[in-house]
Design a protein around this nucleic acid. Sequence first.
DNA 1: CAGTGGTCTAGACCACTGG
DNA 2: CAGTGGTCTAGACCACTGG
Lengths: 240, 240
Amino acid sequence: MSLDYTNSIPLHVQLKKILEQQIYNGYYTEKLPSERELMDEYYVSRSTVRQSIEQLVRERVLERKPGKGTFVAIRTINDWLGSLHSTSENIEKMGMAPGAKLVASQEIEVFGRLKDVTGLDKAHHFKRVRYADDIPMGIERHYYPVGLGKKLSQYNLDQEAFYELLEKELKVKTFQAEQEIKAGAATRNDAKLLHILEGASIIIAERKITDIHGDFVEFERAHYRADMYSFKITLSRNSK
Amino acid sequence: MSLDYTNSIPLHVQLKKILEQQIYNGYYTEKLPSERELMDEYYVSRSTVRQSIEQLVRERVLERKPGKGTFVAIRTINDWLGSLHSTSENIEKMGMAPGAKLVASQEIEVFGRLKDVTGLDKAHHFKRVRYADDIPMGIERHYYPVGLGKKLSQYNLDQEAFYELLEKELKVKTFQAEQEIKAGAATRNDAKLLHILEGASIIIAERKITDIHGDFVEFERAHYRADMYSFKITLSRNSK
DNA sequence: CAGTGGTCTAGACCACTGG
DNA sequence: CAGTGGTCTAGACCACTGG
């Protein structure tokens, strides 16, 4: 691919798109050519190359390491969830020790709202109870496409590492998450697992994650004890 | 102020800090000198000036208008709350018409947790019921320092414009917001205002806003009917 | 030591703005 | 028309990396 010098689209924008494509297509997976090599490859000046790369650094697609080179950025889900904290982090902030226990892992038929949201007929379902200092404070249900679920089920899931597994072990490139937070009342089953009364207030979080192609990766539905759990979000004017 | 050429801190970083200070000190309130004027003023090249300005544009402190100049950015709170939607927006997304009604506006003594969070002894308290298609779906309580509250109380508050008032009319420069979302049960008073049963599930949102100096601006506590309201957050890898 | 990204200069041409 | 930010070039020196 080369640049179109007659086009009114600035060269650095064209080059940025080419590099972005090559990264998402997997052509560059780690180190990029140096700025001087890219100058020769695309017949542009170093500042134009730098403009393209700067944009991608700002979007956290690339990372620059002075003296070493320019690299594809490694980012975890929790990292770009950014202002929203993970379950483990929330529990740790309360001064308690986070824990998890897998109570179900099976293939299921999907119907109703879950089918609408995921677009799946079958899914692999994981159900985990989350603990804070050994007190049960939430139930997290994860739904994955069958193939992905099968792979995940080979790991030890009595830990807090779902997202890390997806990113690091299974190389799923996640892209976007939509999260909804609402309140509700505990079902009989919730009540039993969480040691609370049926009908007690719970806080419900639903999250849908799609990969860079917009394909479904995960749907999660979590029920937390309202007296033990809340979501904290910090929003700041400096996006830095 | 001028730049220190012997200092190891890059010139564009020094210049960025100077400009940032002048903006926050109110020296520049609207239009900045042109890039060519800044070159002459600080004895640097145009690319160095542009590097400084680019950084401030990225942090949303400045805005560039091609052909016109560089300006101090005007930003509303809802704007930088970004991924979190406002009450009105949430109601509109449900396909309903948002409304509000002021039911209390008074100076109060502050104690307990509210005193801890705000650091105030006295506060001005506003209480509004929020509607969706004339159905009451939430109670929002706002607490301000007495002086600010007095100013706000002179406006017509039977509308959705609290943040806009703060920013546009009262020139409060907000900076950071911390938000907590949890669940609870309706008190008798909640139940009466929201037309629900005492003890029914509600979702509770608390938000503390501070200005650019870290000084307290507002504390808000809102109770929403769990069957009618939820928080939606979209998180994306591209921060753009 | 060669190679890397970071910084900085001087200069040029462009499209757009608004009197 | 002069003035603005946007784009682009060519070239230079720097500190840091790692063989």
